[in-house]
Design a protein around this nucleic acid. Structure first.
Lengths: 335, 335
DNA sequence: ATTCTTTTTGTCAACGTTGACAATTCACTT
DNA sequence: AAGTGAATTGTCAACGTTGACAAAAAGAAT
């Protein structure tokens, strides 16, 4: 029924060498003469040989699998993470495993336990907000499971990490709005536990100071979602002296602010300029399209996966890599 | 460094039985006396024993992994599929593997080849639009890889499948709009290759006929995305005798129509009622919130995974399961 | 009691690969 | 020509589990 797959033994027989030699070629080990290499490669191609992952990971120490540990309410974000990691895995013949931790529940410890006990993985890519969850990081380290964090905020330097310069990106937003002539600003903060939101806020405020802004910045607090964005927007826009430009810390809440503006009869960007952060899918699904900062999520994720594949199994000597972001001006802040 | 994991041998020693007996208990095989069962379970619990997936799949025939084969531009959709499948897998100790096929490229055959050659999976969950891609289905069947399709349209009965009654759901939309007093209707079609869109269209039109509708339904054509939704909406709304209610075949394009309405100075739902399909994330991210049909995507996906896990490895005797949908009336069609 | 089933438990060889180590070959020195 | 060390290739035992089959124990039928 099923076509039986060729094994390393078949290849060895065809090439006229021992299996071990084939193994060496497959794994790119040194010290195999060019002639033998060629013979083996030809045999592999002829038989369509593909190593049996389960056998490899049973015999060796690697699992040939990278895991993603996530708990992100935003499907857009999560999918981007996956896309990047997937590309890296496919390139190296690795598999991608998805593990969803629900950190809102009260059995987090058990969930981690269950996941890590079962997971046969060469490393985990950890995404926000888990990146800043000490329990998660501890659990990984106790088991000596390598991991890389994407856009972490707390515990700098604790692990392999990929990030962008949130502060400078927010500052660019400030410059952008300032250049458009705005002088009264509003801010929609993220959830308290999302550290990057804090960094963005600081960068934004510092930049305004540098620019010589004197009027106080109105701040409102919300989650990172559409719903609370509406509330925050309504609050800011009904102040006695409302801002003419609002910076929301992510796109979803920016979309909420736009909705609030519409409900109040305000036209974007004529009456109010709005900027978000992430360049997620919403940014181009609202009208007018949202000015935002492109966060290279899949690039970060891809780099994370490559890192984990390359360094084969250690948390020692963590690497920190910064990936470039990009300001994306769109209609929502047009003059 | 790493805590060595207990193996089946350790458990057997502790319980005072042979490994094979432990294996039997772990796999829930029949013919193990109650007393031995209890002893073995106690030993397993005490040692935190978890079977080694790679070893199992090497020795046995199962891979303890379910794959998702997708090529969906909508992250929301894909994430829902994953969530459902993940729940089913976790419940049975299975792993979830993600494979992304890019059917837009011209090397589809090679991609399938590469994926299926490498994939050690007990079955694939296939999502639209791949569900209706003959090359994909053929490739799976040639290799005798079990699979279940989610919301397929073409090739009915060809495989295990999970679906909703698209036609009846669209008919309910028609009834809903009719009951609100609308008599002039517009339709935004989906891409030609998306069969479910056709089914929805047919159901919608048939229902209007049944209701005694006499005025012709204006149709426009678009993709399934926001961008083309705008174009379709603008077309419909600038007709000489424009509709008072528009049904777009998915939420993204419905959001586009709403945007077009806003650009034309029309107020939803006062001037124009708009309904979508899917109850995706956008539906609640636009204002006013979108009336739509809840598509139980993660339920379908979960059922698909359970099916594949349960029937352990065959495409014979495919099962067809229908999952209930739900009309979700929201503000966009409010009187 | 004795035999015959049936149920329960055990033994052993795969499964396809890697890692440790041994053996061979090769290219230089002397 | 022999000796040396390095480069290349080979052998064999794991890895942790399942499947096929054998053995033992327990029940049922005589």
């Amino acid at each position: 029924m099923t076509v039986k797959r060729a094994t390393i033994v078949d290849v060895a027989k065809l090439a006229g060498v021992s299996w071990k030699t084939v193994s060496r070629v497959v794994n790119g080990e040194a010290n195999v003469s060019a002639g033998v290499q060629a013979k083996v490669r030809a045999a592999i191609a002829q038989l369509d040989y593909v190593p049996h992952t389960a056998a490899r990971s049973l015999a060796g120490s690697r699992a040939y699998t990278i895991g993603i540990l996530f708990d992100n309410p935003s499907p857009n974000y999560t999918m981007k993470v996956q896309t990047g990691a997937y590309a890296a895995c496919r390139a190296s013949g690795y598999h991608l495993l998805i593990e969803n931790l629900e950190s809102g529940r009260d059995d987090v410890a058990q969930q981690i336990e269950a996941i890590l006990m079962n997971a046969r993985v060469d490393g985990f890519i950890v995404t926000p907000p888990l990146t800043d969850n000490a329990a998660v990081l501890d659990a990984l380290e106790v088991r000596a499971i390598p991991y890389a964090r994407i856009a972490p905020v707390s515990f700098p330097g604790r692990s392999n990490a990929l990030s962008i310069d949130d502060g400078r990106a927010a500052a660019e937003i400030a410059h952008h709005l300032w250049a458009l002539g705005h002088r009264r600003f509003g801010l929609v903060n993220g959830p308290a536990d999302h550290g990057a939101a804090g960094t963005r806020r600081a960068g934004f405020l510092a930049a305004l100071d540098d620019l010589g802004n004197t009027s106080p910045v109105s701040e409102s607090y919300g989650g990172f979602d559409f719903e609370t964005g509406i509330g925050a927007g309504r609050y800011l826009l009904t102040l006695a002296d409302p801002p003419t430009a609002i910076f929301a810390m992510n796109d979803d809440s920016a979309a909420g602010v736009m909705s609030a503006a519409a409900q109040l009869g305000l036209v974007v960007p004529r009456d109010i300029a709005i900027a978000g952060f992430d360049d997620s899918w919403v940014a181009q699904s609202v009208w007018p399209n949202l000015t935002t900062v492109y966060q290279p999520i899949s690039e970060m994720s891809q780099a994370a996966a490559e890192m984990l594949i390359a360094r084969g199994g250690t948390n020692a000597m963590p690497e920190q890599i910064e990936i470039p972001y990009r300001l994306v001006p769109r209609a929502s802040t047009q003059p």
